[in-house]
């Protein structure tokens, strides 16, 4: 029982990591840039939703606030690419990486000034509620996190495989030049991918905040999600989710079952896994590298 309980809460955490990792991979595949502010996007997404719904702020309906937060983050993502990154094309990867790190700092500062530097909890209709099932006590928040992640993943799968825009996003990420030749407006597509990753970040942030509190430093969770993305093979969407789940599971399990005096192992376990994966499968668990035929 104890074990199953841990697994479920680990999966719930893992879903959040996985969704942030998904944001990393979306951006990386589309633009070959690593967005180190992805964790901070998530944090901002949570704060935006909190700003709409919490009674201290606007006090809107919770579900409406979620939709609004997703919209705001989509616009933010789009504008970030359109207004800043597009003008950096041709610059080295390093400068783009440093730019996103800097943006992360700015977002953390902004969130602190607008909302709070202290942890704030998101007021959800299901806060503190739980269900009992055969000796298990499951928080509604944890169940919702898992369900929402499954739904979002399925939705993204349909979007990328069935819609013209989704396929075009894949095409532009696989062969940018060829996408240009086909008349696909690559730059606009890239901005739309940023918008999509903003939406995913908003969902991740809201889920994260719903089972606890959110503060500006929560964005640093992005580092763990980065490890998750790397475990999954940085470039594979299912890989990112699986990587997130692995990290989410390993944390509580290693804390619980570590020998006495080694409880701190939970903190390094995600990175230990990352190193092991990189040694034995340098491309990640779901590597998608393919050689080009001439």
């Amino acid at each position: 029982m104890d074990f199953i309980q841990l697994v479920i809460s680990g999966l719930a955490n893992g879903c959040v990591y996985g969704l942030i990792a998904l944001g990393f991979v979306l951006i990386y595949k589309a633009t070959e840039a690593v967005n180190f502010a992805q964790g901070d996007f998530m944090m901002i997404g949570a704060f935006v939703c909190l700003g709409f719904t919490n009674s201290d702020f606007l006090g809107l309906n919770f579900w409406l606030s979620i939709v609004l937060a997703m919209g705001v983050m989509a616009i933010l993502g789009y504008l970030f690419d359109w207004g800043i990154l597009r003008h950096m094309s041709g610059q080295s990867q390093t400068s783009i990486v440093i730019l996103t790190i800097a943006v992360g700092f700015i977002l953390r500062f902004l969130a602190g000034s607008i909302w709070s530097h202290e942890p704030v909890s998101l007021e959800t209709p299901f806060a503190g509620e739980y269900v009992r099932a055969g000796g298990l006590v499951l928080g509604v928040d944890e169940i919702l996190i898992i369900v929402v992640t499954i739904l979002l993943t399925f939705g993204l799968y349909l979007f990328f495989s069935r819609t013209k825009l989704g396929v075009a996003m894949q095409a532009a990420s696989q062969n940018q030049l060829a996408a240009y030749y086909m008349g696909i407006p690559v730059k606009r597509i890239q901005s739309l991918v940023w918008a999509l990753s903003g939406v995913v970040a908003a969902v991740a942030g809201i889920l994260f905040a719903s089972k606890g509190a959110i503060d500006p430093a929560s964005g640093l969770l992005g580092i763990k999600a980065f490890a998750a993305a790397a475990i999954g093979g940085f470039g594979s969407l299912p890989g990112a989710l699986v990587g997130g789940l692995i990290i989410g599971l390993i944390e509580p399990l290693s804390a619980r079952y570590a020998p006495d005096g080694f409880a701190g192992i939970a903190r390094i376990a995600p990175y230990a896994i990352l190193i092991i994966v990189l040694i034995f499968r340098p491309g990640g668990l779901f590597s998608q590298t393919q050689k080009k035929k001439v």
Binding site: Q174, A178, K292
Partner: peptide, 8 residues
């Protein structure tokens, strides 16, 4: 050099 979309 073709330039197809390899994973599609």
């Amino acid at each position: 050099g073709r330039e197809i979309f390899p994973l599609l």
